[in-house]
Design a protein around this nucleic acid. Structure first.
Lengths: 299, 299
DNA sequence: CTGAAAGCGCTTACAG
DNA sequence: CTGAAAGCGCTTACAG
């Protein structure tokens, strides 16, 4: 490559990286660019990574698949934004030991390793992102509880797997805050386990212990659909006897009867700043897309 | 590290890689191992990759998320098997341009890049994997059509996104073969689109045009659930009026009424040989886990 | 059996 | 403004 351009490898590097500390004549610059195009030359990432201390890869740690719209859109945002800055997003699925994580680090020394929804949880995203709107966990928890705004309905929900525990706790706190500020009775937590029969039993117990509960604000769509199924099996009317609202808008929500109304989180706007932070860039000026309720059947 | 052990870097490399071409005295070997442990020394993957020509990473290209059991278990198998051989699995989600793919290659020069379910489709997995059972697309397509074995029911199904088209076509062919060999009437293809109303319309049309169709063998669980919803909305009884059987066993299948019976593919056994092939290893001796039908409610 | 040296392809001070 | 040189941390012929 250097030979073809008739310049030193150093010069090639300067040109291809637009190094501002080095001025290169326009003629040389063009010559190098042209040669790179002709030869299809692209810097070898591994060599560059060795020299620079890390590869242009960001690893996202995600223990689940890409179930709802939240994770899916977040990945899209991360991917786009990283690509725009010459980096690559790679996802690691499953629950891994610390040792396995170290293996990844050792294998490619990624530029950063992101844990899914970490900032969403830690409060980073709870800050005002412009337009007077908060677009984080607190806002989303409140959005779910407030819907529909006209009827005051206590919600209930269920935290689940270990990794999500912290997030569940935070959600719970925000939901309780909302309930309180609306002057509603406190939340009644309920667990709707698998398999189906167990879930139905749990919902039956809830009805008996708390006949006054008029709505369920589910931790996620999976649990919302589980609850819907249980209510169906108990012969209860939705939303007549009790309403259900989901969180995270799975495509399966459309298929239940009644179809599931749910909080829809557009997390591309979360993924982008996360990407920039991972690269050590300023993440100002990104426009958030506030979460909204997808109303399917009346709740 | 070399200094601490009092040996040359070369020797460290020989010991740590168990190089068979080089004999190292037991004493030196122990000394190096001990020093490595003490210092927590691990070979730097990037440097090694530069020298060896590729990193110990395998990239899996997956345009969807991890929806059903097929992709999920396949990823598990790949991940396990690669880890057992000192490699790391990283997943790339979304539909990417050739340019973007090249970016990944340039960034870390992975050992291999796998396209999801490629061998599943190309026939690799259609071979007999031992025990006199085939555990591939042909077997799975047949399994779905044959269920329940007692009643002869024409199936219908729907291919969808571009990437899956080839797979859909192959499935279709295998299903038709099965139908034929069972002496059943030929398959009637049907598309059940989103949104819900459109799907319901499609199923209504099907009923009108082909009142003799008694069962739907869906392309995947999503479509099966869609069909179930449509039938419900049309006031038809399942399986009384028409049966539905899914493919790939989503956890949401449990929640419909009636619950969805589906083909359950344990693809860990597909992931493992794929991993070995990617590493250029022999994949003999791996035990396949044949697909089975998860019967939930009677079809 | 062990060690000194080359080289993988880059980037970046440094000298000209 | 340009080029020769060092060095990132490994592996692997090669000489001792």
């Amino acid at each position: 490559m250097a030979a073809a351009g008739g310049v030193s490898r150093a010069t090639v590097s300067f040109v291809l990286n637009d190094d501002p500390r080095q001025s290169v004549s326009a003629a040389t610059r063009d010559r190098v660019r042209q040669a790179a195009r002709d030869l299809g030359h692209v810097p070898h990432g591994v060599a560059r990574a060795l020299r620079e201390g890390s590869s242009r890869v960001v690893v996202l740690d995600l223990d689940r698949g890409l179930e709802g719209n939240h994770s899916r859109s977040c990945v899209r945002g991360l991917d786009d934004e990283l690509a725009a800055h010459g980096h690559v997003l790679l996802v690691r699925h499953g629950q891994h030991s610390a040792e396995a994580t170290r293996q990844v680090l050792d294998a490619i020394t990624p530029r950063a390793m992101i844990r899914f929804a970490e900032p969403y949880l830690t409060g980073h995203d709870l800050e005002d992102l412009g337009g007077g709107r908060k677009d984080g966990l607190a806002a989303h928890a409140a959005l779910q509880i407030r819907h529909p705004p006209s009827t005051g309905t206590p919600g209930s929900r269920r935290p689940c797997r270990r990794r999500t525990r912290r997030r569940a706790r935070a959600r719970r706190r925000f939901a309780e805050h909302t309930v309180h500020s609306l002057g509603l009775p406190p939340l009644v937590p309920v667990t709707v386990p698998r398999p189906k029969q167990a879930g139905t039993g749990a919902v039956a117990d809830l009805r008996e212990a708390h006949p006054d509960v008029t709505a369920v604000a589910a931790f996620d769509d999976d649990l919302a659909l589980r609850t819907l199924t249980a209510l169906h099996d108990l012969g209860l009317a939705v939303p007549g006897d009790i309403a259900v609202i989901g969180y995270d808008d799975t495509e399966y929500g459309e298929l239940s009867t009644p179809a599931l109304t749910a909080v829809h989180i557009d997390a591309e706007a979360h993924g982008r700043p996360a990407a920039r932070t991972a690269l050590g860039l300023d993440s100002a000026g990104l426009v958030p897309v506030p979460a909204r309720i997808i109303v399917r059947d009346p709740v």
